[in-house]
Design a protein around this nucleic acid. Structure first.
Lengths: 226, 226
DNA sequence: CTGCTTATTAATAATTTGTTAATATTGACA
DNA sequence: TGTCAATATTAACAAATTATTAATAAGCAG
């Protein structure tokens, strides 16, 4: 779950398509906002300032092109990435879309993998996804770019879940994360694993970094402490 | 702006349009070359090998489609990005353009912001190819111009995909590239190949350079590490 | 067209990672 | 200090991911 803070606004008048995209993007950990027409989209965009808006072209109330234009008008929203949804042979729509400042277009029918990979490619361009600086805590350095943890300059590699768990705990040293926090942020909202799973992962981290770096707060959760 | 070394060839028979585009692109720091018909374009392309050519479709002497075809014929110019300029409703031209290997089309009337952002997007697609002509890492030298890798001064030749993959990984040594990163940057955002394809290419690279240069981060991706 | 190289897939093996279940241990609190 | 729920530990098992191989397809030079 590394997309936690990225907001995407989906705009389409067909609930099925909205739901389909919502499902796929939530699965990737994005925060998903929904609108069913251009007017609503502009309103939500202004309020929430998402990083990316995916706009259907053909919609009642206000079409995608117009919505895009309105969004681009606003100085604060200028930088938002906008991708249009287009039927495959709507050549004209594509042109119009780029003219009002679209960053990409995604053609229907939408395939989940293509959707997510296009989105990632788009987001990569922006500053939101710049390299994450390594975090230094005591004699330890957590480097998200290389997925390595250095202990006294010794690199130690961690499997994904362990890394994400450690990464979460170290994101706020000293702060206690409840088991619920941990479950929802490392395992996602649809919790399917048992409580012991956390313990086991904690133990594996302790095996590698020493017993003292992660403290247990009985009845509450865990915290990372120098 | 580090566009100083990027050459763009503009081809159009209308001096006004040439001048307009030249002005806007120079402002961004690109090196701008001009041609007023297809024949001239091919000639200059061969001599100067720009990174990008923006071609009007309708021109005297030799039209854009034909010029594009001639340019694509030549092995050395194959990699050049080509974008067509089209009038708003020249639907057919667009299709023809993509057939002869165009990378994008830009519709008239041209707006500065769109022009430059499209160009940036286009160049970004291949930017990791041209950032640095040769990179030295450990006992290895990767020469992006000749598609050769030297290991202790022994030249080893790599097929295109393998080279691009290696090139991507070495562009940021130590940094983990996710499979999605790799797919979208080596294969393009419309992903059409399966996951195993990456593995196979990785394996072939390892066969040539040794097993240890590329490390697997299970669940995440790969990284190049000295 | 032919033969060669490169790219991709499919099938299967190997490996790593994730989870659970069973049992032991801990520590807050009556 | 004894109790008991919460956490730790361990090992076994399941799931997921990657490696490998060989076969097939696609490109390309001669």
């Amino acid at each position: 779950m590394t997309n936690e803070s990225i907001k995407i606004l989906l705009v389409d008048d067909e609930p099925d398509i909205l739901e389909f995209m919502e499902y796929n993007l939530k699965k990737e950990g994005y925060i998903v906002l929904l609108a069913k027409n251009g007017a609503e989209a502009v309103e939500i965009a202004k309020r929430e300032v998402p990083q990316l808006i995916i706009l259907d072209i053909m919609m009642p109330e206000m079409d995608g092109i117009e919505a895009c234009r309105r969004i681009r008008e606003s100085k604060e929203l200028e930088h938002i990435l906008i991708a249009f949804l287009t039927a495959r042979n709507e050549e004209y729509s594509q042109l119009a879309g780029f003219d009002v400042g679209a960053d990409d277009y995604i053609s229907k029918p939408i395939k989940p993998r293509i959707l997510t990979s296009r989105i990632k490619a788009l987001l990569r361009r922006t500053s939101f996804n710049q390299e994450t600086p390594a975090v230094q805590i005591g004699n330890m350095r957590i480097d998200r770019d290389s997925y390595l943890v250095y202990k006294n300059d010794e690199p130690i590699s961690f499997p994904r879940k362990e890394f994400e768990l450690l990464s979460l705990l170290t994101s706020k040293p000293g702060r206690v994360f409840t088991r619920e926090d941990i479950l929802s942020r490392v395992w996602g909202s649809e919790i399917v694993v048992g409580d012991r799973t956390i313990d086991v992962h904690i133990r594996k981290i302790r095996e590698k970094l020493g017993d003292d770096v992660i403290k247990t707060i009985k009845g509450i959760g865990y915290k990372f402490d120098i």
